[in-house]
Each structure stands twice: as C-alpha cells, then as structure tokens.
Design a protein around this nucleic acid. Structure first.
Length: 579
RNA sequence: CGGGGCGUGGCGCAGCUUGGUAGCGCGCUUGCUUUGGGAGCAAGAAGUCGCAGGUUCAAAUCCUGUCGCCCCGACCA
C-alpha cells in the first residue's frame, strides 16, 4: 500500500471542532479521519476508513479462528420479527421506525437476536447439527436519547454481534469461554487496555454476563476493581459483602426521640448528638427511601421502601439494575399524600409490615445491627432500632452507591473505582429467544431439546474511538501498529531532491510489503509536514531532509518520540524490520 | 424528557448591549520570496448572518414564533 499525500483526500484542521469535547472526537476530526453529517452519524474519510477496516479485520480474524461463521443480515427489518419477542414495543423510542410505500412497518435493526434465531430455526433441526456459532459485522441503528462524544456513542455504529446455539448448559459455558478467549486476543491485538468486569444482563435477560471495559476518564460506565485479587465489576453489578449476623439479646430497647425539624440525615445526626447525648455519625442511621416500581406490561405501581446506611446515597442505576425488568420511579409529594402511613422524612421500618409495604435493605443491614431511624411521626426518630428484633426486612437489595475503599466481595481488600467505556459484552442469554421462537433440536430419543443461546458483542466503530482515546498525546494520535492507517509516514521536507528520494524509498518499501504514507506535497513547509505527521499518528516516521547531503535520514518513533539518524541505504531494511 | 449554552464564508470566532458599509484568524486561489517545526509579502474568490413573521426609512443587531445543534443528568456496542 502506498498513499501519497499530494493526492490523498485529506484536510487536517488546525483548530479543534467546536462540537467536540473528548480527545478521540477532537483528534479524529482534526486529523481528517471522520466528519459529522448529523448528530451521532459520521462519515469515514480515506484514512479513517483504513483504520476502521483494520479493526474490522482483526475482529473477523479472531472470530473465524474461534470457529464462528460469518453471515450478514439486512439492516432494514420488517416489524414481524420483533413482534414475537415483544421488542417492537419494548425498545421504545430508541428504535428507528419507518414505513414502506404500502404503509407496512419496518425498522433499522438495533440488534439482531431474532434474525439469528430465526435463521438457525429455518436450517437446523437435529441435535447432530449443534453446537453452532454465527456472527455478523453490521451497521446498527439506535435512536439514542443523547448521542455524544463523536463516534464513541453514535446513532449509527458498526458492531460485531455473535450468537452461540447449544444443546445444554455445559455447551453454552464452552461457547461463552471461547468468546471470552477470542475477545481477549482481539482487544490485545487492537492495543486496547481493558478490564473484564462482572455485569448485569440488563434488558436482554439472561444470566452470566461480563463486560470488557476500557478505562478512560471520559468513560460512561463506572466500575470497581480489586488490586489484590483481581475482582472487577461494573458498579451496577457490584455485590456488597454482608457482615455476620449478631445476637439481638441484651441490646438496649428501642427508644423514640423528639427530633423536630430533622428531615435530612445531616440535621438528624446533629440534633441527636447535641440534644440526646449520643455520638453517632451518618453511618449509624438508616435512611429509608420510597420508590414506586412498575413492571412492563402492567400499569400498576408497587410501593417499595429501601433502607440504606445514612451515609450513602441511593445509586439509581444500581437500583434499576437490581429491580429489572421493573422500573423504579421517585415517590412524589402526591404519592405521599395517598399513603398517609409513610411520613416523608421520618420513615422507619418498624411500621412497614403493618402498612403492608415491602421493605428491602442494603446487605450491610443484618440481624443484630442497631440503627437510628425514623419513628413514622413528624419530628420523631427512634434509636436502638435493631434489625431482626424491631423490624424484619423482606430481603436485601443492591441500591446503595459504591465507593472507593469499599470491601471487595471476594477478598475483602479495598476496591478502587474508575470510569470506562464498554467495548465488548458477553453473556449467557439462555432460552429467552429460543423460547420465543420455539427453537428446538430433535434429540437422539426423538424428543425436542430447547436450544440455549449466548450473545456476544463488540463495538467495532466504538473501538476506533476507544483506541484514539487511549492512544494519543498533546501532538495528536498514536496508533498501535496493527490498526494504524500505515506502517510508516515518510516526510520529504521539500528541498532539492528530498521528495524524490522519499518517493523512491516509499516504492521500495511498498514492494517489501510495508504500508506507506508519503508526504510528497510540493511547497509545503517542513513544520506543517511534521505537525501533520504527528497529528495523523502513524507509528513510524521517516524524515528525508537536510541529512540527505550526508547520506542519512531520520527514523522517529511516534509513541516514544525517539529519533535516530540512519544511513539512507539502510532505511528500507530498518523500516521493513519494524512491521 | 429536565437543566445550561450556541446558531454569522469550508473550519474556529468577533460584531448584537447603543439598528445604518458584514469583519478577524485558519484554510483556499494567483504571483514572488522562503524551506527542519503549523513561513513572509502582495493580490484575490467565497457568507440567504438557522428559518418565518413583526417593528422601522433601515434589522446579523430589537420583538414574537419556530427549527436545529452542542454540553450536563435518566438508556446502551
């Protein structure tokens, strides 16, 4: 491959685009890799297209190596497929919907479970056919409420999705492990730094689930990691270790305190310490928040009270993940008006059982723990309220916020907390879609076997942005070699025969299988060419300039910035040895 | 959907308060000079000032409406 900048369709920008916030977005636009055409929708220019193809190729190679087989479904899909699984309505506004000339409903596929399932059902009928893994690399469409960060979160994006079809749970586990290994190889080759995190399966249903999160300051996901045992989990999936239960015998009796004007934890702690001779902190109080939970397909809302230690906020994302598919909503003033037993700001669990309200607590609230909490009367709180004696929760729930320093559920060490971008997700889907499609294989005994599925995704276009996000410096992009648009960027600085020599070198290297980008633009000053080379981010830069009169050229490493003068005659060998 | 900001040549921005000739930088074209860190000089091309309506002798500027975009929070590769 030989690209000449004198004719390459490329214009670099000196200024950051006004609509870009994150480094990958700014740099990919400035370096002329992508251009915006609509919110969350981007075009790929020649260099960007090459990088995207490189990423695609690596993903494809690792999928093929694993034994998966590539197919391709249409992006334009009729409504029927998504009717059967209920997702035509469930997907809501995120689905791009359209009608054909006859008024029939169509959609742009946000994901393709139904199509894969249907295809397998149409072709395979015997247990001898299984297992099978199919994948595609397809443009997906989601009408995101808020696309952002350029290509990191678009409404149109390229995704690899694969599905495994197995006869039993052991087979599913094997297919899952195959994907896990393939993903590790893929992301390693892409040069992406990542953590494999336990995840919730979310709206898709299913059980075991892990996310590949690439740590970046601009990430949208929060995850915890334990540096002593290696545990890592999406914040939504973090399990809170429960302390051992304690005996309730001998604990002081519950005591109701007058606590006027103490609707918040802060005012409460201050008041009881000042007026009741206590020495408590927010962590000694039990905060009870009320939510109403609706289940999709039902219009009735269940009232639910959640108890968390008073020094912690409720993390709504974690709460939602815990209640899925139920959807929690804030309990508003008018809701309180309808439930006079629930006294806003002074709710205590002691009364909930009589009110018939379900009560779930943070796992830290175990039998024998003693709390200061509401007394279900305005201006009154109760102290020495003991779990297992004065109230008995209906269960536990992961809803409290996670903090750096919290105990690792596996080994007890302190957890760290970071942000990351989801670049891959693997999970054991189970039989949800197979049930919907009645996907069975005929077993050896002549009886049908319900197929169990796994679902696995990689954000291909997102991966390009993530690499840019992780591999750049103040000068520009710094591509890992395998995804870079070229192996070497030869700069002919422009005087005398320098450009001619640069072109000769370029042709020789091309003949040796090196992918070459050569700056042969006439009349462009050396400064401009150097800046562009640094912005574009090709891993190796070869400068053919003033040293030529002494028979030397300069070999630069973009990532480290190191420079070395080498004899012109050795240049081709040296560069060829790098690739 | 809630909150904040912005719409002016290809890109980044000023002008608006106090109505009157549409301006700056980058980029682009031509010529000369320059050639190891986003060159200099000179001459050019290029803008329905988001859209619609209103006020006015006169609107980028004031008023009303409307559309769009970006950023921060609830969804996901």
């Amino acid at each position: 491959m030989l690209l000449r900048m004198s004719s390459l369709f490329l214009r670099t920008l000196r200024d950051d685009p006004a609509d870009a916030e994150v480094p990958s977005h700014k740099l990919l636009v400035r370096a002329g890799y992508i251009r915006r055409v609509a919110p969350g929708i981007y075009s790929w220019l020649p260099l960007g297209k090459i990088v995207l193809e490189n990423v695609t190729r690596i993903v494809r190679e690792e999928m093929d190596r694993m034994g998966a087989q590539e197919v391709l479904f249409p992006a334009l899909l009729p409504r029927e497929f998504y009717e059967a699984t209920g997702r035509w309505t469930e997907y809501g506004d995120t689905l791009f919907r359209l009608k054909d000339r006859r008024g029939a409903d169509y959609m742009l596929g946000p994901t393709h479970e139904e199509l894969f399932t249907d295809m397998v059902k149409g072709e395979y009928t015997s247990y001898k056919d299984y297992p099978v893994i199919l994948y595609q690399i397809q443009t997906k469409y989601r009408d995101e409420a808020r696309p952002r960060a350029g290509i990191l979160r678009g409404r149109e994006f390229l995704m690899k999705d694969s599905y495994s079809f197995d006869l039993d749970d052991d087979g599913l586990k094997r297919s899952y492990e195959l994907h896990r290994e393939a993903y590790i190889k893929t992301f390693d080759r892409l040069g992406i730094r990542y953590r494999i995190c336990f995840a919730t399966s979310g709206a898709m249903g299913g059980s075991a689930s892990e996310e590949f999160l690439a740590p970046t300051p601009t990430g949208e996901d929060t995850f915890v990691a334990c540096h002593s045992c290696g545990y890592a989990a999406n914040a939504e999936a973090v399990v809170t270790p429960a302390p051992p239960a304690r005996p309730v015998d001998g604990l002081p009796a519950m005591q109701v305190l007058d606590t006027p004007d103490t609707p918040t934890i802060e005012t409460l702690v201050d008041h009881v310490n000042r007026h009741h001779g206590m020495a408590i902190t927010a962590a000694d109080t039990l905060k009870n928040i009320v939510v109403k939970v609706t289940t999709p397909g039902s219009d009735k809302a269940e009232v639910l009270v959640i108890g968390v230690p008073g020094d912690r906020e409720v993390d709504f994302k974690r709460l939602e993940a815990s209640l899925a598919p139920g959807e929690p909503a804030i309990f508003e003033a008018e809701d309180f008006a309808r439930h006079p037993g629930l006294v806003r700001g002074y709710i205590g669990p002691q009364a909930l059982r009589d009110l018939g309200v379900k009560y779930l607590v943070d796992p830290r609230v175990v039998t024998g723990t003693s709390w200061v909490t509401g007394a279900n009367e305005p201006g009154k709180h109760a102290a020495n309220v003991v779990a297992g004696r004065d109230f008995v929760p209906d269960g536990t729930i992961e809803a409290a916020e996670v903090r750096a320093g919290d105990a690792c559920p596996r080994c007890g060490s302190a957890l760290s907390i970071d942000r990351g971008i989801e670049i891959g997700h693997i999970f054991q889907l189970g039989r949800k879609y197979a049930d919907a499609a009645q996907l069975d294989a005929l077993g050896p005994d002549g009886k049908p076997i319900r197929i169990t599925m796994g679902s696995y995704g990689i954000g291909v276009s997102r991966a390009v942005a993530v690499i840019a996000e992780q591999w750049h410096d103040e000068l520009g992009l710094v591509w890992p070699r395998e995804v870079a648009p070229a192996d070497v960027h030869i700069v002919g600085t422009g005087k005398d025969n320098q450009v001619d020599v640069a072109l000769d070198l370029a042709r020789e290297m091309e003949a040796r299988g090196v992918r070459v980008l050569v700056d042969d633009r006439p009349g462009v000053s050396p400064g401009v060419k150097f800046k562009d080379a640094e912005l574009l981010g090709v891993p190796t830069i070869l400068v053919v300039g003033r040293g030529l009169t002494q028979g030397v050229v300069e070999l630069r490493d973009r990532a480290s910035g190191t420079k070395e003068e080498i004899p012109l005659a050795e240049a081709v060998d040296r560069v060829a040895a790098l690739v």
